[in-house]
Amino acid sequence: MSSFIDQFWPSTIDGLSLGAIYALIALGYTMVYGVLRLINFAHSEIFMIGTVAALAVLIGIDTQLLGGFTLIGMLLLLAVVAGVFSGGSAVALEYVAYRPLRRHGASRLAALISAIGASIFLQQLFARVIIPEYFNLPEEKGALPIQHQFVERFNVVAIGDFVVSNDKFVIIVGGIAMMVVLDLIVNRTRLGRGIRATAQDPETAVLMGVNIDRIVTATFLIGGVMAGVAAALYMMRFEELSIKAFTAAVLGGIGNLRGALLGGFVLGLLEFYGSSIFGSEWRDVVAFSILVLVLMFRPTGILGESLQQARA
C-alpha cells in the first residue's frame, strides 16, 4: 500500500498516457460496435499494422534524438503514415471479412468467428511473413525487439512528485485532441449524422437516404485512422502494452464514444494503480476483475451504451 502512495503521481501520469492510447483504440471498437453491433476482434491487429508502419518509417529515416518542432513534424509524419496503413487495412478488412456476411444476413456469431479468423490471420501474417522478411528478424512470436528511441526526453512539468515528461504530455494531449476531432465529426458533420442515424436504426436510416455501405466504410476508416494515430503515439514510449482496449470500450459503455474515452483513461489508471498495489504481474487480473465488478453494478458500462446518445 505504501508503494501505492509513493507511486501515486507517476502512476497517474503513466496511467493517463496509457489510457489515452487505450481510448484511441477503444474508439475504433466502439464505433464499429455502434454501427454494426459487431466486436471487431481484428481491431488490435489494425493497431499493430499502424505500429509496424510507423516503425518502418522510423528505421527508414534513421533519425537521431529529436526535440522541438522536428519532433512534432516527425510525429505528424508517423501519424499520417500509420493512419493511412491502419485505416486502409481496416477498410480492406471490412470488405473481405465482414461485407460478405452482411450481404448474406449472417448471424452475429458467424461475424464474430470471421473476426477472430481475420485476427489470427493478420497476426500470423505479420509474425511469420512480413516482419521477418521486412525487418530481417528471426521469427518470434510477433515481437519486434527493436528499440528505436527518437524522442529527446525532458520534463514539461515538474512539481515535486508530479513530473510530466514531454512524451507522456504529447500522448495525453494528442490523444485528447484526436478525440475532440472525432467528437466534432460525429456530432457536427453530415457524415457523423449518417453514422449516428445508422447506429440508432439502420432500417430507418436507409429509408432516409443514408448509404449504409458508405457509412460502414467510413466507420472502419475512422476507427482505423484512430488506431494508426494511437500507434504513432505509442512509438514514443515502447513500453510493454497488452491490448485490452476492447475492455476499455466495454468499461465505458460500448457504442458510446465518450464512454470509450472514459473507459480508456479509467483502465489505464487502474492498471498502474493496480500494479503499484499488487505488483505488475497482476496488472491484467486487476483490470479484468474491475471490469467484471463494474459490469455487475452497471451492466451496460459506466456511461451506458449507444452511439446516438453521445451528444455534445
Binding site: A97, L101, H104, S114, I116, A118, F121
Partner: peptide, 16 residues
Amino acid sequence: LMFGGVLVLLMAFRPE
C-alpha cells in the same frame, strides 16, 4: 495463418 484465413472464408461462404 491458414487456419485464420479458412475461418474467414468459411464464414463468408457458409455462415450457418
